[in-house]
Structure formats: structure tokens, C-alpha cells
Simulated assay, not measured.
Amino acid sequence: MADRPRPKLLITDLDNTLWDWFDAWYQSFSGMLEELCELSGVEQDVLERQIRAVHQARGTTEYSNLVNEVPALVAAAAPDAPAVAFNEALHVLNSRRKSVTKLYPGVRESLASLKNAGVRVVAYTESGAFWTEWRMRHTGLDGVIDVLYSAPDHDLPDGMRPEDLRTGHLPPSAYGLKVTKHHHVPRGVYKPSEDVLRSILEDQGCQPSEAVYVGDSLMKDIAMARATGVLDVHAAYGQVQKRPEYGLLQRVSNWPDEDVERERALARDSAAIIPTISCAERFDEVLSVFDVALASAQ
């Protein structure tokens, strides 16, 4: 720490670092799944297996066209489309997502304090573009974060466009980010890829010694930052792997089996990766790394 210059760039993860993505996902997805089981009569374990297959094919756990591609739901809904027959389940998903998605305490004030001190703030997430942009708008971070680096959106069935998945009657101007610049990382490249982090540093004109990276995943965020020479800060408050509900995410996620097993092994051995700095309770603990005081809440 002593031989490093004062950092001028914060690179932050988003999910489970700035907001509790897992809780919002679990509350909304489990509610939808319960409704789907009741409405369709299909057993939950059958739905879980088929949902995971769709998630793996599309490369995301937040696939907007999911119910229309689950074979058991297609059969149960015939001759209607599952999204029509089981609309009540989708309503549960969307309403819970809106009500539960919110910033962790101190995040907004911390980011404002850093920007006021001249620190540039960028974000890097593996989540897809559409739902990342939605969470940025929903939590009021459009313009607070200078640049967003995210995965591109998932693949869609032939002939389907992203706008075909939009519900309601909002104009195109209601989507996307208005102030924050949004760049995509290469498709199929995931954390802990050092190449992506190095490309972000190059894009920002910043040396590794001038940057700080904060994220919740020891296996992905912290390992990547350390390998790249960026000061790593662990958002320990955002770890969710030991929550009982986390098993549902593992059962339906798009992650390869080897990633799930590696994560389980790491959860059993918390000393496998030791972060340089840890934020135990709140995001605003990262301010001490920059020698910046917390701004007053607005």
C-alpha cells in the first residue's frame, strides 16, 4: 500500500457489490417458479432441469424468453404460448424484481464522495446488457458510474429481436442509459479473465498501480484483480454462497458444472484466496483506500 500512488480509478463489480442481486433474483425467480408449478402442474425438479438447459443454451440466468422455451411449459400451455398461459407467474417475477432491487446502504453516498474527489468510477459485470442497464436506471446509477463494461445480451431465437421481449407500452427512449457510457466486453469471456481487466485499464488510460478493484467473488473478482496487479478489495458483505437459498441458483444457472463445483469447494475453504483488503459490513469501507470521507446523504 505504501509504495502505491493514490488511486485515481475505481473499478467495481455490480451484482452483490453495489446491490443485492442474489436476493432480488431469488425472491423474483422462486416466486415465478412456485407459480409455474401450480399453474402448469409440472413438478419443480422437472422445471429446474429444463430451465437450466435453456439458461446454458442462452448463456444467462436472466433470460427474458425463458418460459416460452421450457419444453414442459410449452406442452402444458398448448395451444397457447407459455408466456400467455402463465402470465400470472411472470407478473410475480417482474413485480418482485422491481420491489426488491435496491442499492446497499452507503453506495450512492460513497460513489458521490469518490467522484467529488476526482476519482473516476467504472463498473465491470458479467451480467447481460439489458438487465444491467435496467438495474442501473432503477437504482439511479445512470450518470453516477462513468463507464459500464458488460457482457453483450444473450442470444435470441431466430427471427426474434430484443424489442420483441419488451412488455408494456414504453417508447424506445425509456430503455438504455442516458449518461453512463456502455461498452461490451467480448462474448464468451468471463471473470477472472486478466485480458478483460487489462483492456479496461488501457481504455481508461490507467496503470494497474493506479486502480482499485472491488467485488464480492473471491474466485472471480479478487483472483482477477490480484493476477492483474490491481489493488483488490473484497466486498465480503455481498457473499451469498453460504445462504441456503443459493442452491436454487446453482441448480438452474447457466454456469458449467465445473464452475459450480469449484465454487462449492471454495466455499468450503474460505482461506483459498485471501483478499488484500476486505469491506466486512458496507461498501463505504472502500473509501479509506482512497483517503476520502463519506459525503452526506442527499
Rank of each mutant, 00 (worst) to 15 (best):
247 G>D: 14
175 Y>K: 08
162 P>C: 08
150 S>H: 08
290 F>M: 06
269 D>M: 03
143 G>W: 11
79 P>D: 10
95 S>V: 14
243 R>T: 10
156 L>K: 04
218 L>T: 08
42 V>I: 13
108 R>V: 01
193 S>H: 04
243 R>K: 14
21 W>A: 10
278 S>M: 07
76 A>R: 07
20 D>Q: 04
123 A>S: 15
281 E>N: 15
43 E>K: 15
117 A>F: 05
91 H>W: 00
188 G>L: 09
209 S>N: 13
208 P>G: 07
251 R>V: 01
260 V>N: 01
177 L>D: 03
133 E>A: 11
85 A>L: 04
265 A>Y: 03
58 R>W: 00
246 Y>S: 02
265 A>W: 05
170 L>S: 10
6 R>V: 12
245 E>T: 08
22 F>G: 01
177 L>Y: 06
185 V>A: 12
26 Y>S: 02
257 D>M: 08
158 D>E: 14
90 L>I: 14
197 L>Q: 05
145 I>L: 04
4 R>Y: 09
202 E>C: 04
266 L>R: 15
109 E>I: 06
138 H>W: 03
216 D>C: 07
37 C>Q: 15
245 E>F: 10
80 D>G: 00
142 D>V: 09
18 L>D: 05
175 Y>D: 05
157 P>K: 07
211 A>Q: 09
228 T>H: 03
243 R>E: 13
79 P>S: 12
188 G>F: 02
283 F>C: 07
30 S>M: 12
176 G>N: 08
114 L>P: 05
3 D>T: 11
265 A>E: 15
99 S>Q: 14
274 I>K: 15
146 D>R: 04
20 D>Y: 05
150 S>V: 02
54 V>T: 09
226 R>E: 12
2 A>M: 12
108 R>E: 09
257 D>V: 12
40 S>K: 13
152 P>T: 08
202 E>T: 13
155 D>I: 13
270 S>R: 13
167 T>V: 14
297 A>Q: 05
